[in-house]
Design a protein around this nucleic acid. Structure first.
Length: 811
RNA sequence: GCCGGGGUGGCGGAAACGGUGAGACGCGCCUGCCUUAAAAGCAGGUGUCCCUUCGCGGGACGUGUGGGUUCGACUCCCACCCCCGGCACCA
């Protein structure tokens, strides 16, 4: 027996797989049934330079599933590609005076090489990259379909602006008031920008969660929170001494009689008009100006204040004039930017009223004899009743809410309303390295779409990528910047903003199915075969960004007849990241450990096993390589055991030995761990147990069968060594062999150990046949000397029997 | 504050349904074999405490803390402590 040399073995099999196109998936299998396919998808990676062991863990989890389902007879699609546009490459280009394309492509080449060395079963013929014109042509094409459908539109709106990256951000990209990428406090600016109208789909996103058969509960919760549905009413307030009505949204219309003042957001368009000519005008406008100068974080953290406008609104329920204030705790971009303030029943309103000595009037109270609700501002409940609320006094709060709304509805002053926290998706970016937005601005025709046959609008070369608040493309050469308007033929100017990279990753999973199509983004029939994705895998950090965007994209495409499904990823699994020093490994933070040294020392198989073995696949782990040696040890042991057994003849018939039974139990355990539980750590432990067992009884007649099975079961996790040993055991192409099946008749142990307890304490053990009748078992247990000693002559008042497990005498 | 998830040996982590022996598997550590020696490998041991005729053996305690349900609880219920993640001016 030669020594196990992972370098030799791994190189050999990687070449064989490549030569035989082992993991290349044909376009679609003619006549194949949909349930024979298995579309296995990992979230599109950003090519950030080099892989770290966190990536190795994630992709190896995917790889195990791919091998497993392929050997279970599924037609597996397992592609790879690159989310190649985006700020890091552009910033690196500015820093190093390089070109983002060259930097990106260099990174891709380097990562691809690492991936191949680890031996993942990827279909590289389907590789795609979002920065290539072949890909972004179709990103643009889809944009135009959305544009025609009114789903892509331009508007002036307050937007989040990152002063460091010099670009606008989507709401999802603002974390705690800071830019998700660089941590800079974001500012609020009013700018004209491109949006996808995904608030149209807010309700469907909620409703269609029913179609998501297997998603982590926390992701669904995060999406629900993000969409933020609330039910209530829109109510009109007349401004005293004018014809102006201001609309507010409230979730507590039952408290309308307690609305004792009225607040406008500083950005509310009515503010200037209301204070025109008032003595308070200067002070109010100064307040508005000061608020506008603050960053989002400053505004959120400062103590809330406000100014009185000198004007009053009329409470539509009481007819009473209430003062109108402008205050920074009211936000322009939720609801209507104006609120009715009910200080008795809202914590924020109460704080404000206290500060400025405004009237507090309770209008909801616990019912007679009921204790006051926990906390002064708890949500209303059946047990609370309206007080001091005119004709509604005495009604239960929820009923009162309905009654007040329909009363005002009759006077056209209110209507039931649902609001969402979700804002439209801001998709334009004032940066270079992204997909150009394919429209022109024409003085005569306005915004005009570039015709499909002129796509792609190529990203032009520019001299300077540095963001200066204006898109770098504004400085593109004239021959790019100016183009004839497709409408009137006059010279028009191209759109200079580029798209958010989340647009690129909202449809890539469709392109994988038909990656070289140059007539359409994809062929409908191919999509119908492969989609929806059978298993989607990625980090939880995309719970409210990528996953919501991609869901939205599919809904619109479905409405446009481009695809035949409403949810792309019915089954989602979140892997846990590998951490270092308590945080996710990250190249940019310098907390990153690459796979290369480990692969050079112990081989890819040992590393693959180790990253699977460190812990449950959905949990984060802190990186610690001390156990890697143990995996190498296991592989050498497997090597030795397999070679020993290769000397033994194969079994003709199925013998029934303890080792054979153990082997069948292992098949069952490994299969269930992979297919149902995603328990990659325990499936490996199970194979280790089996190998230990073979080493202990090498002359068992079932030993060769056990060894071959162990090799077969470890193949998804350690494919190179498995392939080599399989060959040395006299077989071929393990990756094509069907997955072993456990024989149910051999799953049961021949004898089981039954515990005999007296009062719940173990006093003896019996070895009996698993199907021994209960009476016999009890008789046997009662006959035990040790049991008799502890029973001390007493009779059991109760006997508990768990067949095959235990007998418990209670005295 | 609200909503999730979690606290098990020196370490990473195992234990569908409440049903033996908690601690699989691996790391680390200890002892022995092999070796001139080391590495590798192999065999065995390894929760805490106690009794022991030291050969087996036996007992008590032990899954964050305190209660509870049950013949029986890592698993169920109540209260509390701690850690991780998400949300948090959304009217």
């Amino acid at each position: 027996m030669d020594d196990y040399d992972p370098q030799v073995t791994e190189e050999k099999w990687q070449r064989v797989w490549e030569d035989e196109a082992a993991f290349v998936t044909p376009k679609s299998k003619p006549g194949a049934l949909p349930d024979e396919k298995y579309y296995l998808l990992e979230m599109l990676p950003y090519p950030s330079g080099r892989l770290h062991v966190g990536h190795v863990r994630n992709y190896t989890i995917v790889d195990v599933l791919g091998h497993f389902w392929r050997r279970r007879g599924r037609h597996v699609l397992r592609p790879m590609g690159w989310d190649a546009f985006g700020l890091p490459a552009e910033n690196a280009a500015i820093r190093e005076a390089g070109h983002p394309r060259l930097i990106t492509e260099r990174n891709i080449a380097s990562i691809r090489e690492q991936m191949k060395r680890i031996g993942w079963a990827i279909d590289w013929t389907r590789e795609i990259s979002s920065h290539t014109p072949e890909y972004y042509r179709w990103t643009q094409w889809l944009f135009l379909r959305f544009f025609e459908a009114g789903q892509a539109y331009r508007k002036e709106a307050p937007v989040k602006w990152c002063p460091k990256d010099q670009t606008v951000l989507a709401n999802e990209q603002v974390i705690d008031g800071r830019c998700e990428r660089c941590g800079t406090e974001v500012e609020s600016k009013s700018l004209e920008q491109w949006f996808y109208r995904y608030t149209d789909y807010a309700q469907q996103m909620l409703d269609d969660m029913e179609l998501l058969e297997s998603w982590p509960e926390r992701v669904l919760t995060m999406q629900r929170n993000w969409i933020g549905r609330s039910e209530g009413a829109d109510i009109l307030f007349r401004v005293e001494g004018s014809e102006v009505d201001v609309e507010v949204f409230t979730t507590r219309p039952d408290t309308l009689f307690g609305a004792t003042f009225f607040v406008l957001a500083p950005e509310h368009p009515l503010v200037a008009e209301l204070v025109q000519g008032q003595p308070e005008q200067t002070e109010v406008l100064e307040y508005v100006r000061r608020t506008a100068a603050r960053t989002v974080v400053e505004r959120e953290q400062k103590e809330k204040d406000g100014v009185f406008t000198g004007r009053h609104a009329v409470n539509p329920a009481t007819g009473e004039p209430i003062p109108i204030w402008v205050a920074d705790y009211v936000l322009m971009d939720y609801g209507t930017g104006a609120i009715m303030a009910v200080p008795a029943h809202d914590e924020r309103d109460f704080g404000f009223a206290e500060r400025y000595n405004l009237t507090v009037r309770p209008v909801v109270a616990p019912a007679e004899g009921e204790p006051a609700a926990e906390g002064a501002f708890a949500a209303h409940s059946e047990s609370e009743r309206l007080v001091d609320s005119g004709e509604f006094t005495g009604m239960a709060a929820p009923d009162g809410a309905k009654a007040i709304v329909s009363w005002l509805e009759g006077k056209s002053l209110a209507r039931a309303a649902v609001r969402y926290r979700l804002r439209d998706w801001l998709l334009s970016r004032q940066r270079y390295w992204g997909c150009p937005i394919p429209v022109v601005h024409c003085e005569r025709c306005g915004i005009v779409a570039v015709p499909d046959d002129e796509l792609p609008v190529l990203l032009p070369e520019v001299d300077d990528y540095t963001p200066r608040g204006k898109a770098p493309l504004a400085a593109a050469p004239d021959e790019w910047l100016h183009a004839p308007c497709p409408g009137c033929g006059e010279m028009a100017t191209r759109e200079v903003d580029t798209m958010d990279t989340f647009v690129d990753s909202s449809w890539y999973f469709l392109r994988y199915c038909d990656p070289r199509n140059d007539e359409a983004p994809f062929e409908r029939g191919v999509i119908d075969y492969w989609l929806p994705v059978d298993q989607y895998i990625g980090g939880v950090e995309h719970a409210v960004m990528h996953l919501l965007y991609a869901r939205y994209f599919c809904k619109v495409m479905n409405d446009l007849g481009l695809v035949g499904f409403r949810e792309p990823f019915p089954r989602m699994f979140n892997h846990g990241w590998v951490h270092m020093g308590g945080a996710k490994m990250s190249k940019s933070k310098g907390t990153s450990v690459g796979p290369d040294d480990y692969v050079a020392e112990h081989g890819a198989d040992a590393l693959r096993l180790y990253v699977l073995f460190v812990g449950p696949a959905d949990q984060a782990v802190d990186w610690n390589d001390s156990g890697l040696e143990g995996m190498a040890r296991f592989l050498r042991r497997l090597w030795r055991v397999a070679h020993e057994q290769a000397e033994h003849p194969g079994m003709d018939a199925v013998s029934d030995t303890p080792l054979v039974r153990k082997t069948h139990a292992t098949i069952a355990k490994v299969s269930d761990d992979i297919a149902r539980r995603f328990a990659m750590n325990t499936q490996i432990a199970a194979v280790m147990e089996l190998v230990n067992e073979i080493a202990r009884s090498p002359d068992d007649p079932g030993a060769r069968f056990a060894a071959e099975t162990a090799v077969s079961l470890i193949q998804p996790s350690a494919p190179h060594i498995a392939e080599e040993l399989w060959e040395r055991l006299g077989h071929e192409r393990l990756w094509e062999q069907s997955w072993p099946e456990a024989d149910p008749s051999l799953l049961e142990r021949e004898t089981v150990e039954v515990v005999v307890q007296v009062n719940g304490r173990i006093r003896d053990r019996l070895h009996v046949a698993p199907n021994l009748p209960e009476e016999e078992l009890v008789a046997l247990a009662r006959a035990s000397d040790r049991v008799r000693a502890f029973m001390d002559g007493a009779e059991a008042t109760r006997t508990v029997v768990v067949p095959g497990r235990l007998v418990n005498f209670v005295i």
